[in-house]
Design a protein around this nucleic acid. Structure first.
Lengths: 145, 145
DNA sequence: ATAATATGTCAATATAACTTACCTATAATG
DNA sequence: CATTATAGGTAAGTTATATTGACATATTAT
């Protein structure tokens, strides 16, 4: 954007609203499935990360979620009750706990993801690969702020 | 993306995580200012929309926020106590209430926005105008699902 | 031996939202 | 004019998610 010399506040406000709405809609499509298993948005996020990062440690999960361990533990306890996660101690450093979705957990994730990904999938399908690459690029820059 | 024939689940998972992180970071930069006025994220969103849509009606505000009116009213009462919003009845249909930020409200919004926009501003500044246009395009497609 | 790290837990509180129910005022429509 | 719809408000109780602060245990690193 250097060539434009300025970025108008109105454009920035508009983008901020869109980031909010995009997030909200992306994480509300799968609500029916969450209700089916009596879990919520916090559980969905944890399951999502467990699917992406199999065997992630508690501290890394905390770092990705940016919540306190008290908050995360409530969610993990619910997922244990649901019988969808398992833990394995690190073989070298036994303080570290690795968290995994079991088969049931993976199935439930697929149920959630099937609904959630539709919105993104359709948006990308309707875009050129360059548009998609640029979307990803800018989003990454926003995150790395 | 039609030319690619498929979109991998891993790419979609990654984007969904980024959408979450992008939202969270975008709405956490201004926390210090919110604390200063003893308000929270819900208030920030309302103030943001009032800055974008001056004189918006209650029902349109509700539609944009997608919350219940009980929830919105808690926030509006706090903003009234803070003395930063005013109402004007619609001249034609007096059932309709238009909501405005007053001068104090506009100043507080600017304080919040100054911190919040930096992240987006820098990301856009570091991008080509085509990247920015494509980011906006894809985000719009995600929203309009 | 001591300090740091990884994790867990108890208790209290805060924030933002929800459901259910009911209310007033005004406008639109037959 | 009577009825219905719309715009908005309110009360009570509840839920979801997160916080702070304090403390505890096991293990690893120095």
């Amino acid at each position: 954007m250097k060539e434009l010399l300025y970025l108008k506040d109105d454009q920035l406000k508009d983008l901020i609203e869109k980031i909010f709405v995009g997030y909200r809609e992306t994480f509300s499509d799968s609500k029916k499935i969450l209700d089916k298993y009596s879990i919520g948005l916090a559980h969905q996020k944890v399951i999502h990360l467990l699917s992406m990062y199999e065997g992630i440690s508690i501290s890394k999960l905390l770092a990705k979620l940016k919540v306190t361990k008290q908050s995360l533990n409530r969610v993990l306890k619910d997922l244990i009750k649901l019988e969808i996660i398992v833990f394995k101690k690190d073989e070298i450093d036994t303080r570290i706990k690795h968290v995994y979705l079991n088969e049931k957990g993976k199935k439930i994730f697929e149920e959630i993801f099937l609904l959630q990904k539709k919105r993104i999938y359709n948006a990308l399908l309707d875009s050129s690969s360059e548009e998609v690459i640029n979307f990803d690029k800018v989003l990454k820059k926003i995150i790395n702020g």
